[in-house]
């Protein structure tokens, strides 16, 4: 029996790459809102450690969802929020 190897490779690769970009923005932005803790390092270390989990969560949710529009909208909202935090940090840094 031969099965069709048809596979939406571009769609899958696009989703995996987009989720990589989303995860990078989220961990970078998270360093702006996570509390640093007593040692003053949690806001940097925790997002870096969480990166693989964030990446796979975005990837599988966006690729496997039955409601792609809603999933992409929620992911886009999260990413925009973190982009805003990053931009505010740069503006604040420039003013400072």
């Amino acid at each position: 029996m031969t099965r069709s190897p048809f596979f939406d490779a571009a769609g899958a690769l696009g989703t995996l790459l987009a989720s990589l970009g989303f995860a990078l923005v989220v961990i970078a932005g998270a360093s702006k809102w996570l509390p640093p803790g007593d040692a003053g390092i949690d806001h940097i270390v925790v997002p870096i450690i969480a990166f693989p989990a964030v990446w796979i969560t975005f990837a599988l949710t966006l690729y496997g969802t039955e409601r792609p529009r809603r999933a992409w909208a929620v992911a886009g909202g999260i990413v925009l929020l973190h982009l805003l935090l990053i931009a505010l940090g740069f503006v604040g840094g420039a003013e400072g």
Binding site: L24, I27, A28, G29, S31, K32, H43, I44, P47, I48, I49, F51, P52, A53, W55, I56, I86, G89, G93
Partner: peptide, 25 residues
Amino acid sequence: LALTGTFFSLATTVLIPVVAMVAFG
């Protein structure tokens, strides 16, 4: 193993440069 391995491989090559760009200029 897959999650921790991804972290250890990408921490110094990708993640630290990205976070340093945002948090440490």
